[in-house]
Design a protein around this nucleic acid. Structure first.
Lengths: 244, 244
DNA sequence: GGTCCGCGTTGATCTAGGTTATCGGCCAGA
DNA sequence: TCTGGCCGATAACCTAGATCAACGCGGACC
């Protein structure tokens, strides 16, 4: 396989935390199958699916979601290029949620069979993949804190800060600017708010000069103030060096 | 080591999902060090700690918590006998949250060194431990849905259902009764509510005859109605057979 | 070129849950 | 035996955010 480039965002993310040997890079690169395009709005994975592969996002923007019996929708995570959206399905076979593309995405499968073989042959790589799912859980916890303890403006500010840092770590954003192809409805489904209230809060942040948001493009004008408002502490993202 | 009994709740939980060989049982049993008692209200792990072992709960009741700069406290998970409270610290070295004993607990350490060796020698066991952290994340997601989409009564009902099933799976509860050593303040910190409102909702559930709750002891009188109110679907707990 | 329709924006009104305060029971410790 | 503190229970009042409704804009489709 000479498809190595597809996996590079993941390798870069991992290499920021720990040393990845050439053999390990090779093993990771051999994991991915043929890429596939998924149009914005389409589901990548449906709730209840039992996939025999995990889906890796090469580029794009997608979200894990859960639908409630009462017609609500909660987005429980946002995934970007370099993320596995359902690495956990290797272990928890049946999907407890779905994944939808928020923007056009390019994705590639990693067969569970190959991943399982990797757990036999590459313990260190296994731990690094395990870490990926553990960071997902840490992000979930941070969102729980936001939903349980912070008000609407604070939650929105926190989300913007988190997304920017994750995008920056993936080399997808810089200079406090990034494209965020989400509607205000999507945002509401992340933050547990209605679209109307998301709009009001957003207008408020704009009026305060904290950020601009035009045509799916965000510019943070005052990172300090935004991070303070969102009570944002990036430690939970584990973007720093810390061998596993 | 003849300390095997301590680990049995975990082995039972795992054996419900997959076959555990005698060698694997032995390996798990050898993992735990000397037990320690932790009194109710005491912290098991402080936020920011960098433990070189993960803490296993032999018996008792504890909770992971995050404090906010504004003085709030969010409980992000409740752990019972048979759970690791911070297995993820094997990979994400620095704790992003603390763990507090809600009732008196007996806990035992599993050295990271030994766990790391286990990932070298027992890939299947590694996947089962990985699954433990993945189920934690699934529970986090379910709580996110609760906090984002359900009202107070529904969230409380959901929590009761989840705890009962987890306790039952661990052989710690049966007949729709269990002891729940949490104050209404604790409950509020789980559900993102004030103690006052927790009390109101609780009184309401009692008046409706859905449950009794006296002196830290819960009796569910109408499981069906409670599960319906909480929109509870136990699939996410992965209590059924599903080899890894 | 007209017509939809998704999306953002805004206003008016309503309500779930927060805030503040009070009270009683219980228990541990002086 | 008293006392202080934690915990549950309630009441009065308040506000963040929901709900409902309307409108404008721009792009897709006929």
């Amino acid at each position: 396989m000479s498809q190595a480039p597809m996996i590079t965002p993941l390798i870069e993310k991992m290499a920021r935390r720990d040393v990845i040997t050439p053999i390990e890079r090779e093993a990771l690169a051999n994991l991915l199958g043929a890429t596939r395009r998924v149009a914005a709005g389409k589901a990548l994975v449906e709730p209840g699916d039992r996939p025999n592969f995990s889906t890796f996002v090469v580029s794009g923007f997608c979200a894990r979601f859960t639908l409630t019996p009462t017609g609500g929708r909660q987005l429980t995570q946002i995934n970007i290029g370099g993320d596995f959206v359902d690495l956990h399905s290797l272990l928890m076979r049946q999907m407890d949620h779905g994944v939808v593309a928020l923007a056009d995405c390019v994705v590639a499968p990693a067969a569970h069979e190959d991943l399982r073989r990797l757990t036999q042959q590459h313990p260190h790589l296994t731990r690094l993949l395990w870490l990926e799912t553990v960071v997902d859980a840490a992000i979930h916890r941070q969102w729980l804190v936001a939903l349980g303890q912070q008000n609407a403006a604070s939650r929105l500010a926190h989300l913007i800060c988190e997304l920017y840092l994750r995008l920056e770590a993936g080399g997808i954003a810089s200079d406090l600017r990034f494209s965020l192809p989400m509607t205000q409805v999507d945002l509401g489904d992340v933050l547990g708010l209605t679209q109307v209230h998301v709009n009001r809060v957003l207008m408020d942040l704009r009026r305060q000069g904290l950020l601009d948001w035009k045509a799916g493009h965000v510019t943070v004008n005052d990172w300090e103030a935004l991070a303070r408002l969102g009570q944002f502490d990036p430690a939970y993202l584990r973007l720093q060096n810390d061998p596993v």
